[in-house]
Amino acid sequence: MSLHPMYARPRDLEQASQLLASLSSGAVIIAGGQEIMPFINYGVMMPDVYVDIGGIKALKGVNVNDDEVSIGALTVHRDIQSTEDIVERLPLLAYAAQQIGGGWQVHNRGTIGGNIVSMHPLYDIAPALLALDADVELLSDKGLQRMSLLQLQNDSSHGLGSSSILTKILVKTMLPNVLWGYYKLKNSAGAYGSANAAAVIQMDGEKIKSIRIVIGAVSETSVVISKALDGYLGGAYTLEIGRAIEKVCIDAIDEPLSDQQGDGVWRKAMAGIAARRATEMALSNLTTSSIKR
């Protein structure tokens, strides 16, 4: 807690990681600032040191290697929404990024890395990435480390934001026969999500081959549901199956959130509705053309 915090703008990753290692606690990484500035403005957070990673080239850009898309942590939401490689290969992510609140102003500055590291239950990026089984790459004093986002979500010792840096997000290109849907339930245009669901479905002709659903905004962390849906594979989609999916997803929520957007009982029920709607959106064969750049 300091009235006169320090600021550093490391040139590259090496310098950044050395700097972070040299600082005892109290350092805060800043990217777009869209998450931390409100806390700083209200004095809720008074860091001793800001480490601005905005100047680090290695954290920027979107690349494709074989079938893997690598997204630099500093990529802003607006670019997630419009970069060709993301729109074509990861339309679910592009679409989810479009559902982020705060307007273009926030989309132009908020980074995907900052969004993930915030681990805010109501946010949109994590459900989409979890549905795509994404990996992340971290840099800490232990060096570079790759792990799944799911693993990261359950690991409280990652030190992201103060001692380690999220460098990139790695996602396999979605296969052409993969259908996807994303449904965000929010009370009004300016509200945060009350239930966010991402669905990724593989079809075999008319038959459902696999389903993976991720529910966000309903519990403290996003909930990945796939195994529990195994019983509904192999046939065509029907409304009954939709209802059954709804039920499975409701049952998957143990401790629903309760906030001003709505109480826990409703939230839990909405997990099911959002899941069914995301599924239906996927099955209605939504294509990349519906993405607004």
């Binding site: 703008r9 500035m37 601005d52 705060g102 273009w104 102003q105 132009n108 500055r109």
Partner: peptide, 24 residues
């Protein structure tokens, strides 16, 4: 960052200046 009254353009793109740290 909710109301937008502080909106300016940074390099041609709108941003909320109240949640943008000047040093960055």
């Amino acid at each position: 960052g909710h109301c937008g009254a502080c909106t300016v353009m940074i390099d041609g793109k709108v941003a909320k200046s109240c949640i943008t740290m000047a040093a960055t």
